[in-house]
Design a protein around this nucleic acid. Sequence first.
DNA 1: ACCACAAACTTGTCTGATATGTGATGTCTG
DNA 2: CAGACATCACATATCAGACAAGTTTGTGGT
Lengths: 235, 235
Amino acid sequence: MNVEKISTKKVSESVAEEIERLIKKGMFQEGEKLPSVRELCELFGVGRSAVRDAITTLGGKGIVYVKRGEGTYIREFDVSNLFNNQLLLPSADDIKELFQVRKILETGIAEKAAQNRSDQDLFVMERYIFNSTEIKWESDYHFHLAIAKSTHNEILIQFMQFISATMKKAINDFHHYIQKNPDKVKKIESQHYQIYEAIKKGDPDEAHRMMSNHLDFVEVELMKSHVLLKISDEK
Amino acid sequence: MNVEKISTKKVSESVAEEIERLIKKGMFQEGEKLPSVRELCELFGVGRSAVRDAITTLGGKGIVYVKRGEGTYIREFDVSNLFNNQLLLPSADDIKELFQVRKILETGIAEKAAQNRSDQDLFVMERYIFNSTEIKWESDYHFHLAIAKSTHNEILIQFMQFISATMKKAINDFHHYIQKNPDKVKKIESQHYQIYEAIKKGDPDEAHRMMSNHLDFVEVELMKSHVLLKISDEK
DNA sequence: ACCACAAACTTGTCTGATATGTGATGTCTG
DNA sequence: CAGACATCACATATCAGACAAGTTTGTGGT
């Protein structure tokens, strides 16, 4: 049969691809205005809806942004837009993989932090280590984020935030489990302090080692807490 | 003054946020069908265009997908959708930051690969080490990707591909520069072989060290090639 | 029981009308 | 002449109606 799949393709999709192609080819300059919707209609020979759909899709992808009453502009390269925030929960296997990535990345971050940290960076870390008023796992998150920030590498920071956000939704129960065991909380706090000390000393290798210890411990506890099992049951 | 910024907010954006909220709250099940556009119109009390715009935006973000004549479905968590492919070139500073991330990540990948590689994984690596027919930098890309694949961690693989894709567009000239210097090509090839040997031996520390050496060398050459300067001039 | 056709959904596209935000232009006033 | 202000042109945003096209479902005839 000569049933063409192409015929099922939406016009707006073709338009979106064509616009992407033109941007990639440099036909439209970065930060510059795209032709108006009606001009694009003539150019492609389609209705307004199709063009608007295409532009809306590109807007969702973060490739362009629309200013009402003004026009459509091409969004420039933006490190804060590198990662997709997915709404749904990752599976237990995904969490495991994600934690592997986190171990690799965050040990490296600790290393870099030990080299690049400023005194202000240390000050921020101290705030979240010794803070007892805030909820514990909020402090935990802020402490790890403070380390990432002292690398002064925006992409690393974004990536840490992304991983935290993705995991946070899934391992909320884990923190409750941990906080019922005061000895484990104490252990984590001491690990945090060791990491902090290594970064303060400016010793990359030790910072790496301490962070590795810490994350290994957390990983084991994470498994023990049966959180991952619960998630996979729900699926 | 009580001038409300909200008034400038687009209706379709509000609808999109509301749908996101409902998905996040679990009101709509993963993989299940959303109410039809006309139902959502009644539900939110807005026109079809607004709802359609909202759905199209969510489609662009990869949160839902639409089957014509059937309905709108919620896309499930997908590791291949974690990273945004941006069309525009990163700046010189972005490239530097990106390379830092790559060093952290890929040394960790080499470590993991040394632990988890199967014999098939080694076989694939060999193919791209000793392949002399293919274009050099294509082999280079495939070799590094093969290492990532032998971690058997899908997120790591996706991340490597993402970094490669983002950098490839910007450092195309770099490969031309390298290939005009046969001694440097030889050096890179020998570094590749050392990485391969370490992974074959199953020695994570040596794999880490060899990969680190390799990337340090590449980084220096990258700076020397003035590619980064050229990019920043263009901006 | 099975097959074919039709009906009843769905989304996709086009079109026209109206609302609203933005920028430029011209006009009026001090 | 300069600055405040009204106006106009043009952009997108939204709505509504009509029709096209795909999918599912049911129905009725064989």
